[in-house]
Computed example of a mutant assay.
Amino acid sequence: MDDTLLHRLRVEQARALLDGVDPHHAVMLACDLLVAGVDGEAVVALASESARTLPAHAADRRLAAVIAELGLPEPDLSTAVALIAADTAERILDRSITAEVGTHGLYVVGYEGSQMDDLLPAVTALASRLEDDLGGRADDELRIQLAALARTILNRTPAGDPA
Score class of each variant (00 low, 15 high):
Ser78Leu: 00
Thr124Phe: 00
Asp117Leu: 06
Gly105Thr: 02
Ala125Gly: 10
Ala122Gly: 00
Glu131Cys: 00
Thr88Gln: 11
Arg91Pro: 07
Leu126Val: 01
Thr79Arg: 13
Thr88Gly: 04
Asp118Arg: 04
Tyr107Glu: 13
Leu93Asp: 15
Ile84Asp: 10
Ser114Ala: 09
His104Pro: 00
Tyr111Asp: 12
Ala99Asn: 11
Tyr107Val: 01
Ile92Lys: 05
Asp132Ile: 12
Leu106Pro: 01
Val108Phe: 04
Leu130Gln: 03
Glu100Leu: 09
Met116Cys: 03
Arg91His: 13
Ala80Gly: 15
Thr79Cys: 15
Gly105Leu: 07
Val81Cys: 06
Thr88Tyr: 05
Leu83Cys: 08
Glu112Gly: 10
Leu120Asn: 02
Thr79Ile: 01
Leu120Glu: 11
Arg129Ala: 11
Glu131Ala: 04
Ile97Asn: 06
Thr88Asn: 10
Val109Leu: 04
Gly113Thr: 06
Leu119Trp: 05
Thr124Arg: 11
Glu90Tyr: 06
Glu90Ile: 06
Ala80Thr: 11
Ile84Glu: 14
Leu119Pro: 07
Val108Pro: 02
Ala127Pro: 02
Ser128Phe: 03
Asp94Glu: 09
Leu106Gln: 05
Arg95Thr: 14
Met116Thr: 00
Leu130Cys: 00
Ser78Asp: 14
Arg91Asp: 09
Ile97Val: 15
Asp87Phe: 02
Gly110Tyr: 04
Ile92Tyr: 01
Val108Leu: 06
Leu126Glu: 00
Val123Ala: 06
Gly105Asp: 10
Ala85Lys: 06
Ala89Ile: 12
Ser128Thr: 14
Glu131Met: 03
Thr88Val: 14
Ala82Val: 00
Gly105Gln: 08
Ser114Trp: 02
Tyr111Gln: 14
Ala125Gln: 00
Ala80Cys: 14
Ser96Thr: 15
Leu130Asp: 05
Tyr111Gly: 01
Arg129Lys: 12
Pro121Met: 09
Val81Pro: 05
Arg95His: 15
Glu100Met: 08
His104Leu: 13
Thr79Leu: 09
Tyr107Asn: 13
Val123Gly: 01
Ser78Val: 06
Leu120Val: 03
Leu106Arg: 02
Gly113Asp: 04
Ala127Arg: 11
Glu100Phe: 10
Leu106Thr: 05
Gly102Ala: 13
Gly110Pro: 08
Gln115Arg: 15
